[in-house]
Amino acid sequence: MSLTISRFTKEDESWWDDYIWQADNGTIFHTRRFLSYHPQGRFVDHSLIFKRKNSIRAVLPAIEMEMDKDRVLYSHRGASYGGFVYRDMGIAEAFEVVEALKKYARENGFTRILITLPPLVYMNRYSNYIDFAMLQNGFRYLKREISSVVQLPSHPDQVLSLFKSEARTATRKSIKSGIEIRLSDDYDTYYEILKQNLKLRHNVTPTHTLPELKKLAQLFPDRIHLWAAYLGEQMIAGVVNFICTPRVVLAFYISDNKEFQQYRSVNNLFYHIFQWAVQEGFQFYDFGIFTVNMDPNWGLGKFKENFGARGLFRDSFELLMWSPQNP
């Protein structure tokens, strides 16, 4: 029985997120709850559902958009990661799903497909079948960014051994200075630190507005947390953590007040966050990418390596429907 493809409708919201959380490779970014934080009109949703008879074989969160005069099917412009989400997919079915997507895109007037996949550790069951099927069907690597991922130890007492010598010294100094690390809901203060930090370092503004960040935290109170460092009652640093899968926690917006840099509060933050993550059974901590369009930020990469991070690919694939490989 061949695969059929239908476009996501409002009625599909009732089962979509449950499917994502029970899948081999679903993340917080594939859920409708996460994608719903975007205001109406920002994106034109074009998510797809792949079925065999009445069985859902895969879903693809996606939008449609115009880009460089192309009509693009993009998975997903409004999230860190996209791609097919599935359960128990073999190699033959991976090829079927990719071939069905190509046929659908061509029949619906798309001239380009863009898909960004999470790093491999986001999978509950490792597989490169989809990547292989896409490459064999004319997709190419658009870019291969490097994400800094820490493989967490089995016991909290082993966390400090992940850190390089200088980072261990700074962490101990911060702990002795009386800096307190705790969960916080004071996003307003944190956001002011973040804005100043990004302006000083990169002369940019945060990707998310303060209301958007607050909305995400409200949508996922059990999965999105603000960890903050306090000197007395003053917040001097913070990082927002996204619990993306049962195995992976992702750092968003690491930021500190440069007036208090001597307290090395960021080191202290990650020491406590890693201990919490190990206690909760997480296996990986993702610091996010330190490359932009495959151009490394060497200082940022070294900063993350100080906490035991190593680089894993975050791949973006592209299919040009009119290319010589896809006449």
Rank of each mutant, 00 (worst) to 15 (best):
L152K: 04
L194G: 08
F139Q: 05
L183K: 13
S147L: 00
L198K: 08
Q151W: 02
E166P: 02
S174M: 13
N241E: 13
R140D: 12
Y141A: 03
I175Y: 09
L216P: 15
E180M: 10
V159K: 04
M235E: 06
V150T: 12
K176Y: 04
D185S: 07
K164I: 11
L160A: 06
L183H: 08
I193D: 09
R172C: 04
R182A: 08
H225W: 08
V239R: 03
A217P: 04
V239F: 08
L198N: 05
P153D: 06
S184Q: 10
P211E: 03
F220G: 02
H208C: 11
M235W: 04
P206N: 03
T189N: 14
N197W: 03
K173R: 12
K164R: 11
L183D: 06
K143R: 15
R168K: 14
N203M: 05
Q196T: 11
N197Q: 10
I224M: 13
L231D: 04
Y190D: 12
K143T: 09
P153G: 03
P156C: 02
L160R: 05
V150Q: 11
S174W: 05
L142F: 15
T205Q: 10
S148P: 00
R223N: 14
I193A: 04
K173M: 13
P206Q: 05
P221H: 07
R140S: 09
Q234G: 02
H208W: 08
P211W: 02
L142D: 02
K173G: 04
A237S: 15
L226F: 07
H225D: 07
Y230V: 03
E212T: 06
E233H: 10
N241D: 13
E166F: 00
V240F: 06
V240T: 11
S165V: 01
P156G: 04
Q158L: 05
K214T: 04
Q151S: 13
R182T: 08
V239Y: 06
H155D: 14
S154Q: 12
